[in-house]
Computed example of a mutant assay.
Amino acid sequence: MRQNTLSRCVMDVIELESFLNSPPRGFSTERCAGYTVVKWDQENSCVFIDEIQSSKGNVIFCNSPGREITVRTLGEYTDLRRQLTSMTIYILVSACTNTTVEEKRNRDVPDLRYYVVAINGSHPMIRWEMERGLDQTISSVAGESYSVDVDVSAALQGWVGENFQNLVDAEKVKPTWKDTHFTIKYRSDALFDIPYWFGFSKRQFKISYHGR
């Protein structure tokens, strides 16, 4: 996805190595011995990617909070909500594939490829789904701690389509997508946060999109 076409794009799915070799506008990479540092424009993007081990070494996204974002005040939550509905959101997903040969050998470890998913949070459809999901899953940010998983698996599958396949050992294999979410954690200072201590504050909603 390129920033100059952002208003027309809903999302994009880019293999990690392609992303690093030809970063989108607003991103730059610096390769050092054993690792790659990715810098990005924090005015236009939300990057929720942990440090990752790729085929070419460790990849570090500077200033990324990782897949879990913690907020502690109403102001922090409001600012995060504004970012999610006005910027491009980047997360890293895993594509796991088992070939016929691997299945015959009873191999438990599938081939693993990484893709960067970019979602235009300012697109009317995505913004509406994000706002609706947050409104439905977050009942209070004043006296209750909670965790909310924002799952993009439906949007990802809708974007790549049912016929998307990876080439593994000269065999075309349909992947199983993993790590397709990021988590918002609100930590209240309340001493008697009963729902949180009993595990009732874990929630989830999905961002969906079908078609290009």
Rank of each mutant, 00 (worst) to 15 (best):
D189P: 04
L191D: 02
R107T: 04
Y186P: 02
D135M: 11
A95Y: 15
S140M: 05
L167M: 12
A118K: 11
V116H: 01
L156H: 10
T100H: 15
S208H: 10
I207Q: 08
D193P: 10
Q165E: 15
I60E: 01
K56E: 06
A154I: 12
E144I: 01
I52A: 00
R132P: 02
R203S: 07
D12F: 08
T73M: 14
F27T: 07
A170W: 14
R127V: 04
T183P: 04
D108R: 15
K172G: 00
I184H: 05
G161S: 10
T70D: 06
F200V: 02
F27E: 10
V47W: 09
L16A: 04
R105Y: 15
R2T: 07
D179P: 08
E17I: 00
A33Q: 10
G57T: 00
Q136K: 12
F198Y: 15
S139L: 11
G57C: 01
V141H: 04
Y77L: 05
T97V: 12
S208Y: 13
C46A: 11
N163G: 06
S153P: 02
R127F: 13
S140G: 03
L167A: 06
N166R: 09
E43D: 09
P195N: 05
F192A: 01
S139I: 07
V152A: 08
N44M: 11
G34A: 03
G57K: 02
I14L: 13
R132C: 11
Q42G: 07
G211C: 09
Q53R: 10
D108T: 12
T99P: 13
R67Y: 10
M125C: 12
T99V: 04
E76K: 07
I207V: 13
Y209I: 06
I119W: 10
S139K: 08
V168K: 05
S54G: 11
R132A: 12
V141Y: 09
C96N: 12
S208P: 07
A154P: 05
I126C: 04
I49D: 00
Y114Q: 00
G199E: 14
A118Q: 15
K202L: 03
V93L: 05
N58H: 08
L112N: 10
R25M: 08
I49H: 01
V160Y: 14
T97W: 03
W40V: 04
F164G: 06
G66D: 02
Y115T: 02
Y35N: 02
G133L: 11
R25L: 09
F19Q: 00
D151H: 10
P24H: 06
M1Q: 11
V117E: 01
V93K: 07
S145V: 01
P65Q: 01
R82H: 15
K39C: 03
C46K: 06
G161Y: 14
G143R: 00
R212N: 12
S208N: 03
C46V: 14
V47R: 05
G133S: 13
N4H: 15
L84N: 12
F205I: 05
R31F: 06
N44Y: 14
V47F: 07
